[in-house]
Simulated assay, not measured.
Amino acid sequence: MMGPTTSDVHPTMAVKIFSAGVAACVADAITFPLDTAKVRLQIQGECQTSSAIRYKGVLGTITTLARTEGPMKLYGGLPAGLQRQISSASLRIGLYDTCQEFFATGKETSLGSKISAGLTTGAVAVFIGQPTEVVKVRLQAQSHLHGLKPRYTGTYNAYRIIATTEGLTGLWKGTTLNLLRSIIINCTELVTYDLMKEALVKNKLLADDVPCHVMSAIIAGFCATVLSSPVDVVKTRFINSPPGQYTSMPNCAMTMLTKEGPSAFFKGLVPAFLRLGSWNVVMFVCFEQLKRELTRSRQTVDCAT
């Protein structure tokens, strides 16, 4: 009697979570300079001093950062970024299918169940991974230029200083905004990717393989970037701000609006898309391939035993 084919064997939840975590770390390591450029462009405008460096465009920001602060500054906060992917991305992506099945009312999953799954996994991921987000943003934003003393010397130093000077709540600063951002990105990203892949395969435009995954990931990244940009900019500004600069998140948004105008909410949009779009491509392709290979290995072991 023949055993099931690879396509008949579904990956376990553990395989999905592990694959999502590894794929997210690979994607983060590759696209991190774009994320750093996005953060620097988003906080630009807070410091109005004449000596402040003005960043122009994605490439201009990256080259200016590398020239003035050294190439390694582009990877400032990477350890916290990888910790964020391990603690949150692995759950929000790895648990998506399982949550989708939980919310499904029949054999076929509806759009409502996809959105509900995205909301749930996105919320869980934020509460677990918020401290890593706070540390990552602050390390990316800090500069040693113009005699400024860095607030933190490294990742674990940042965790310690934030916890001791701002309390444990400081590590969860901006959780509400990040929760809103994560829900928007998670729902848009995962649901759009899911729907696009399904449509391309069902209509026989592309097979369920790398070209299909790349196309779906790019479209998902674009939709998620545009919808989440205003929340993302306010979140970055609020998380990076020292105690007392803004009285609340709405105050941060109103300060941006009155001082810099509506366009401030879309600062860093191009690097945000380049980063999220390329992050999606690397992550989803790695995720799908790793998940497939681990499932195939598990099937081989099961057949051997």
Rank of each mutant, 00 (worst) to 15 (best):
I86S: 07
Y55H: 13
S182L: 04
G81S: 12
L139P: 03
W172C: 02
F287S: 08
T109L: 10
V135E: 15
G106E: 13
K291L: 02
K56V: 13
G221N: 10
S278F: 15
S248K: 05
L139W: 09
V282R: 08
P33F: 14
T155K: 00
G261W: 11
G45Q: 01
S116I: 02
K204N: 08
V26I: 15
T169L: 13
T165Q: 13
G76I: 11
P150R: 15
H144P: 07
G106R: 12
L65H: 08
E198F: 04
L269D: 01
Q289C: 10
G147K: 05
T225W: 01
I30H: 00
G77C: 13
V201P: 01
G70F: 11
T98G: 01
L59V: 14
F222C: 14
G81F: 15
M196F: 00
G81W: 15
L274G: 12
D8T: 14
Q299T: 07
V126I: 14
F32S: 07
S228Y: 00
N157F: 08
L274S: 02
R67Y: 03
M2I: 04
S216T: 06
S113Q: 08
L95R: 09
T165E: 15
A220T: 03
V214S: 06
T121I: 06
A123W: 04
S216Y: 10
L290M: 14
G129R: 09
M2Y: 02
L95W: 06
M196H: 06
F32L: 03
V285L: 09
V210N: 06
C47W: 00
K173D: 07
G70S: 11
V210S: 00
